[in-house]
């Protein structure tokens, strides 16, 4: 079964900006982990590194090791990483906006036989009836929630063993976020996927993952089970707005002061 091992990973952009400063984490086969952290913590950089997409952003692995499904993947290009069974849903809902829903699914299914493509597409439309209703519409005209569903459908068509999802709740209402998390959890359970969930919405993430990593300024500053994270006063203060006296402004000052590293 699939798993991810990252050891002491350092990533640099344009040769000078050190975005990851020695990150280590692990996701066992079929396990769901969450990466939490504020903007600029290095979460998306980690997603790019895992999926072999760093060169697209003028970045590279400086040091450390990434093992995907038992194979070292530090310097593998994105296509080779995809062949190892890792599919990444990048931040910003990167569907193909000018392609219809059906064409988006067809593009993602490029390696499948027509029969297999039909089977999985039928499954996607059963899971997401709204996508079926809008199958002939361009992706750019879908709502945020529908686009997220479409991305999950596209990911399914790549038949992944490891799914890395970057901020699926971004810009979605709480109700839609809950729905997306429910679907992610179902997919993970039904397909036996290893899930790496990158989120800022800690509460949503806690509901579906077993373990949590908190990142800040390119480092992992907390590692533990979801229960341990929820019992940790610092994590709760930082992500769920715990009891800091003095209202919102004081809470912000408190957060600025209270750094993990």
């Amino acid at each position: 079964m699939a798993e991810i091992n990252v050891e002491n990973l350092k990533v640099v952009y344009r040769g000078v900006i050190l975005a990851l400063q020695g990150v280590s984490l692990r996701a066992g086969a079929g396990e769901a982990i969450a990466l939490l952290g504020p903007n600029g913590a290095g979460k998306s950089t980690l997603v790019r590194a895992l999926s072999g997409l760093l060169p697209q952003y003028d970045g590279r692995v400086l040091d450390g090791k990434i093992v995907v499904n038992g194979q070292e993947a530090n310097h593998l290009p994105a296509l080779k990483v995809a062949e190892l069974g890792l599919t990444a849903i990048l931040e910003g809902r990167p569907i193909f906006r000018y392609l219809t829903v059906l064409e988006n699914l067809r593009a993602a299914a490029h390696k499948l036989t027509p029969q297999r493509q039909k089977e999985i597409t039928d499954e996607i439309f059963t899971r997401f009836p709204r996508l079926y209703e809008r199958r002939f519409e361009q992706g750019g005209y879908l709502s945020g929630g529908e686009q997220q569903m479409l991305l999950l459908g596209m990911a399914l068509l790549t038949e992944p063993r490891i799914l890395v999802v970057d901020e699926p709740s971004l810009g979605l209402s709480p109700k839609l976020t809950e729905e997306v998390m429910r679907v992610l959890n179902e997919l993970r359970r039904d397909k036996g996927l290893t899930l790496v969930l990158v989120e800022q919405n800690a509460r949503a993430a806690f509901a579906i993952v077993e373990r949590v990593y908190v990142m800040e300024q390119g480092r992992v500053v907390f590692e533990g089970t979801a229960q341990e994270a929820q019992a940790d006063a610092d994590v709760m203060e930082f992500y769920l707005g715990g009891a800091v006296a003095g209202g919102f402004a004081e809470a912000k000052r408190y957060r600025r002061r209270k750094r993990w590293v």
């Binding site: 999926s51 997409l53 697209q56 062949e83 599919t87 193909f96 000018y98 067809r106 593009a107 490029h110």
Partner: peptide, 23 residues
């Protein structure tokens, strides 16, 4: 055609296409 769909996908975002394993 399948190639036509892939070309239109790549023309929108090569990065997104690579993430989906499109060559």
């Amino acid at each position: 055609s399948r190639y036509g769909v892939l070309l239109r996908a790549v023309s929108e975002s090569e990065t997104a296409a690579l993430a989906m394993g499109i060559n």
